[in-house]
């Protein structure tokens, strides 16, 4: 099980790095789908055996993050004719280089943060930290509202991975509540993306800057 878990986590790190370097929105959505689907295997692997709760949790997560979200984003990008991120705030090569630096930092932090008990895998915490960071970075360094929604999903993925450390303690009901919230959040964001597209005729969020301080 340990080997499998390691392989899955390495796959997740690779999807993060590819996400940082992908300029085509379609590719990014595909990567997010792969990541979401692979994520669904984690509860099973972390438990060590296939329990009912792990199966339900993993399956719901895989369907939502590997199927529903990507379909939603793909549909949205087609409807509003966004194909690629033009002129991101941080370029793709610099993004990748920063990403590699942060990945190193995540491994160092993971080695320092020793859990009070044996972790399902030594890669778990570094992967979670790096994925969460990738999500935050995509939200901050990209202009398209759609890419920001994607970043939010990746951030949630990272926190989901970190949650595997405490997989025994989180009640299933709460986990499902969290997933429901994320789903509703992405849904509302998706609706807003449409409105942004209509109001501004584009979805570059750095044009959303009318609101600022003015004094008398």
């Amino acid at each position: 099980m340990q080997d499998w878990m390691g392989n899955v986590l390495i796959a997740l790190i690779l999807t993060d790095l590819l996400l940082l370097g992908s300029s085509q929105l379609r590719n990014a959505i595909r990567l997010m789908a792969v990541q979401g689907f692979v994520l669904g295997l984690l509860p099973w692997l972390a438990h060590g055996k296939l329990t009912g709760a792990a199966l339900l949790m993993g399956a719901t997560s895989a369907v939502l993050k590997g199927g529903v979200f990507p379909a939603l984003l793909r549909w949205a990008s087609r409807e509003i004719h966004v194909r690629r991120e033009i002129e991101p705030l941080v370029g793709y090569i610099p993004s990748l280089l920063i990403g590699l630096g942060v990945l190193t930092g995540a491994f160092v932090a993971g080695a320092r943060l020793t859990l009070p008990w044996a972790s399902p895998s030594p890669l778990l915490i570094p992967t979670g930290l790096f994925t969460a960071w990738t999500g935050l970075f995509l939200i901050m360094a990209r202009r398209k509202a759609l890419t920001q929604v994607l970043g939010y999903i990746v951030l949630e993925n990272g926190i989901f991975i970190l949650g595997m450390v405490v997989v025994e303690a989180m009640p299933l009901l709460v986990e499902l509540g969290v997933l429901l919230d994320v789903f509703a959040g992405v849904f509302v964001m998706g609706i807003l993306v449409f409105h942004i597209n209509r109001e501004f005729s584009h979805i570059d969020v750095d044009q959303l800057d009318a609101l600022r301080e003015e004094t008398l």
């Binding site: 807003l192 409105h195 942004i196 959303l208 800057d209 609101l211």
Partner: peptide, 8 residues
């Protein structure tokens, strides 16, 4: 637009 920006 302004309320949309605030909402986002």
């Amino acid at each position: 637009p302004r309320s949309l920006e605030a909402t986002w």
